[in-house]
Design a protein around this nucleic acid. Structure first.
Lengths: 237, 237
DNA sequence: CGGGTATTTGATAGGGTTCAAAGCACGTGG
DNA sequence: CCACGTGCTTTGAACCCTATCAAATACCCG
């Protein structure tokens, strides 16, 4: 829960009362293991999930069995805030490793959005998620191979930095190469070669679920990465 | 404004009072011409835009001049609802043809979200936009060439159908091939060959800004299109 | 140590990009 | 009415990135 609050505070003022309201909203905690399904696609949703710890993949598979990871959730992310109005998710939420997830009923979320301050907090998180998706569309459309992968590492470095998970020593990223390939929209064979290229260029190393950026500026250049979309500055409300 | 209301009613019950509130919210109308910029990236936003008529592209260009169209806005879409909390957009809104745009100050939007019913209406629109993006990520990652283009036509047929623009005769789609290529993340040369393939397979024709689906089932099969994400059914609130 | 999974490498084919140029539609002015 | 300009579409050819198929190696866990 501290991670969630840390992320909120990094972008907006948060009063102590609001923080208390959030913390005491009556979260039910639950732990998932690697490859456990947290939310099934199409399933009727009655509560909203907050990731306290670990990593989650948003997984979509079409008729032909091709799997695409649409996005990654990290500690402090509201995983299915849109489910509150849509009542379901069209993709699957899968734990990428051991995960702690807290959930509250939709009804409680609706009560919370009665307060303008809490409403803004939730809206802001949804908006950030939206621009992250937009940036990823840009990356998938206009970057290739190495550039896309570099983008992933850049974004993760910053998103995980916000919640204190990424440090000088790097950060955990519990994805197999196959899974990262499903995320980047390429084959695992090709991904492997891209990783090799990044490693040999001494930009970033990635092995056994741990990533370490060796050359931040070089990596950003390779990805043509502009961090503006993450809205890392404080937002005036 | 009727298009907006039509779209809302297609997905949720809308009371007459709420409809009146929306209509009389004090919209300021303005007309834009082809390639006019409606919102500049990074610009401080003070009002929120609703597209009454026409088509808008969300345009993102990175340092190297490569342009990616992140999404398309059609009549009835709230174009920059996330700008209310973020205060800016990281992409540009460009009119793809003559457009009628209505706008209201952010302050008014915030007042409206005081009402639970209006709040849900706005949330739902934001959520739909989000799942449309997710579906496009899936398409960019896992479909190629012809499949991606077929997806665009499928989605447009349904989205424009909701607001009464797509009919048996087809629908307008004022994109040059270069622009559609920027949307699909490919070169205009390759796009041209994909369009040719779709045309010769008698699935869809597209010329001078007008698209006509010749074989809906065939087109859906080609795109492996599943319309579930558009949430076309009524949503229980 | 053994067996399964994940990573790495090789060889080949094909889809997509790139560069280049020709064809076409439309508007404008002489 | 035709010449000309402009922007969009279409086609061609060569090259490169990425997918595909296949196999070898490394790794982890029981």
């Amino acid at each position: 829960m501290d991670r969630f609050v840390a992320k909120l505070r990094s972008r907006q003022a948060l009063s102590n009362e609001d923080e208390a309201l959030l913390r005491d909203a009556g979260w039910a905690e639950r732990r998932y293991g690697r490859h456990d399904t947290i939310v099934r696609p199409g399933e009727a949703l009655t509560s909203c999930h907050l990731l306290l710890n670990g990593f989650v993949a948003r997984c979509h598979e079409d008729g032909s069995g091709a799997r695409q990871i649409i996005g990654l959730g990290v500690a402090g992310d509201l995983l299915d805030i849109h489910g509150v109005v849509l009542g379901r998710l069209d993709h699957e939420l899968v734990a990428l490793g051991p995960c702690d997830v807290a959930s509250i009923p939709h009804a409680r979320v609706r009560e919370m959005t009665g307060s303008p301050a809490l409403q803004k907090i939730i809206w802001l998180q949804a908006a950030i998620e939206h621009v992250i998706q937009a940036a990823w569309i840009q990356a998938l459309g206009r970057k290739r191979g190495v550039g896309k992968i570099a983008h992933i590492f850049c974004e993760m470095q910053l998103r995980l930095g916000l919640v204190g998970i990424a440090t000088r020593m790097g950060f955990p990223l519990p994805l197999s190469q196959q899974e990262m390939a499903d995320y980047a929209g390429m084959t695992h064979v090709h991904l492997n070669r891209c990783l090799k290229e990044l490693r040999e260029a001494r930009l970033v190393s990635f092995a056994s679920g741990w990533a370490k950026v060796e050359d931040w500026e070089g990596l950003k250049r390779m990805a043509r990465f502009d961090d503006g979309y993450l809205n890392l500055r404080l937002i005036d409300l």
